[in-house]
């Protein structure tokens, strides 16, 4: 496997160097913003789903600008599938842990001080689990569609 820096500089893959340079700057901001939306879901508008979509968009921008190989190095389809599944299981586990207080989905953690980052009991944890699930599954759907599109276009080429 070639060095990742060499692959990034490889001009034959992905888009032009203008796009690549902009994406390099923007990607960090996109990911930070996505993480912010997930983590502050219980305090500000947004939450696990919205933040997860933004994070997944970060991966999609990476794929579009640098080509699929670079993006797959960051998260391949197997990792996406495992993250996706563990997001669901984490969410369900939070629900089941509510049984420690007698009810399914009971908010069993302390509520904390209002408007603090660590407050509202299990809700931030639920947001993180949902964010994980949405990021991984949207990226997996994008990968599946891109692979399927390539498969279809190869079929069309054969016909021609």
């Amino acid at each position: 496997m070639p060095d990742i820096d060499e692959e990034i500089r490889d001009t034959s893959k992905g888009m032009t160097s203008i796009v690549k340079t902009v994406v390099r700057f923007a990607l960090g901001i996109i990911v930070i913003f996505g993480a912010y939306i997930v983590l502050y879901g219980h305090l500000t508008p947004g939450g696990g789903f919205a933040g997860g979509v933004i994070l997944a968009c970060g991966y999609i921008v990476l794929t579009l600008a640098f080509g699929r190989q670079i993006a797959l190095r960051k998260m391949n389809n197997k990792a996406a599938s495992i993250l996706d599944t563990s997001g669901v299981l984490a969410f369900l586990a939070i629900g089941l842990l509510g049984y420690t207080g007698g009810y399914f989905f009971l908010n069993f953690l302390g509520r904390g001080k209002m408007f603090d980052l660590v407050s509202a009991g299990t809700i931030p944890l639920c947001n993180i689990a949902i964010g994980l699930k949405v990021t991984a599954s949207l990226f997996a759907i994008f990968l599946a569609l891109s692979i399927f599109g390539r498969f279809i276009s190869s079929l069309v080429d054969e016909d021609e």
């Binding site: 599938s81 495992i82 599944t85 563990s86 669901v88 299981l89 369900l92 629900g95 089941l96 399914f104």
Partner: peptide
């Protein structure tokens, strides 16, 4: 909860 959890444990 059981079928939902088992569905995803199954995938793992």
């Amino acid at each position: 909860a059981i079928p939902l959890g088992m569905a995803f444990i199954n995938l793992l």
